[in-house]
Simulated assay, not measured.
Amino acid sequence: MSDDRTHVQEFFTSRAATWDARFPHDGPAYAAAVAALGLRPGDRVLDAGCGTGRALPPLRAAVGASGAVLGVDVTPAMLRAAAEAGRGRDGLLLLTDVSALPLRDAALDAVFAAGLVSHLGDPARGLRELARVVRPGGTLALFHPVGRAALAARQGRRLAPDDLRAEPSLRPLLAGSGWRMTSYVDEDDRFLALATRGR
């Protein structure tokens, strides 16, 4: 297991049981971000780094009973918390690394990823893997329920100019990984970058 993966698991394992209670008001922001993906009934969607599965209910509502929802995470404790919250009813929960998904090429219509990019040991590799499993023209939403500046303030740090999620950093990272950024919003109450899978 890589050091990056071990670090991520340690970070989230210690927080899994109280994660939802710490952020009880994020539901509407998740629902709005899911709506921005433009999912249709019958679509196949992945919640990459699903954590406690807060996006799974709106994803299921968007794709309906005929659609497929898969939530993957590298931290067993987060998936247990998702199952205990009943979110396994909205999507299949799978323990796996986003950088090595057990899915065939072009299997999905869309990917939702909340807070994922900054936890990837190799962001370009992770984004390439997400591109591999999404059909050409499919969509990606990189989301966080607060913007970059608000998150930095919450964590007691300064916002670095070379931050991975800053638009001048993120746009070429996505482009080099098979995605074309179509919109970018970084406000106090949300971060949402949308991208389309190249053809």
Rank of each mutant, 00 (worst) to 15 (best):
residue 38 G to N: 05
residue 181 M to Q: 00
residue 4 D to M: 11
residue 117 V to L: 14
residue 23 F to Y: 15
residue 82 A to Y: 01
residue 144 H to A: 13
residue 195 A to N: 11
residue 135 R to M: 06
residue 130 L to C: 07
residue 154 R to C: 03
residue 53 G to Y: 00
residue 89 R to S: 14
residue 36 A to N: 03
residue 193 A to F: 00
residue 197 R to A: 14
residue 190 R to G: 14
residue 36 A to F: 03
residue 141 A to C: 10
residue 121 G to P: 06
residue 111 V to L: 08
residue 140 L to E: 07
residue 147 G to W: 03
residue 170 L to Y: 00
residue 169 S to P: 04
residue 118 S to F: 07
residue 72 V to L: 08
residue 153 A to W: 04
residue 111 V to Y: 02
residue 47 D to Q: 02
residue 49 G to P: 07
residue 29 A to M: 08
residue 69 V to L: 08
residue 49 G to V: 03
residue 116 L to P: 12
residue 44 R to C: 13
residue 190 R to N: 13
residue 172 P to K: 02
residue 21 A to F: 05
residue 181 M to S: 00
residue 97 D to E: 12
residue 134 V to F: 01
residue 111 V to S: 09
residue 48 A to F: 03
residue 66 S to I: 02
residue 174 L to C: 04
residue 118 S to L: 13
residue 26 D to T: 14
residue 144 H to R: 10
residue 67 G to W: 02
residue 20 D to K: 12
residue 97 D to A: 14
residue 63 V to M: 04
residue 191 F to V: 11
residue 152 A to C: 11
residue 192 L to P: 12
residue 122 D to C: 07
residue 95 L to P: 03
residue 26 D to L: 10
residue 173 L to I: 05
residue 8 V to D: 10
residue 103 L to E: 10
residue 48 A to D: 10
residue 169 S to D: 05
residue 24 P to Y: 00
residue 78 M to R: 11
residue 111 V to I: 07
residue 4 D to V: 12
residue 10 E to H: 15
residue 94 L to E: 14
residue 125 R to E: 15
residue 132 R to Y: 01
residue 34 V to N: 03
residue 74 V to D: 08
residue 197 R to G: 12
residue 44 R to T: 10
residue 90 D to G: 06
residue 31 A to G: 09
residue 148 R to L: 15
residue 75 T to L: 09
residue 114 A to F: 11
residue 8 V to F: 10
residue 6 T to I: 11
residue 144 H to Q: 14
residue 129 E to H: 00
residue 35 A to Q: 10
residue 103 L to S: 04
residue 165 R to K: 09
residue 66 S to W: 03
residue 5 R to G: 12
residue 62 A to H: 03
residue 162 D to A: 11
residue 53 G to R: 01
residue 114 A to L: 10
residue 48 A to V: 08
residue 20 D to P: 12
residue 199 R to W: 09
residue 135 R to Q: 12
residue 171 R to Q: 05
residue 41 P to S: 03
residue 53 G to D: 06
residue 92 L to E: 15
residue 177 S to H: 02
residue 171 R to T: 06
residue 64 G to R: 06
residue 59 L to Q: 07
residue 154 R to D: 13
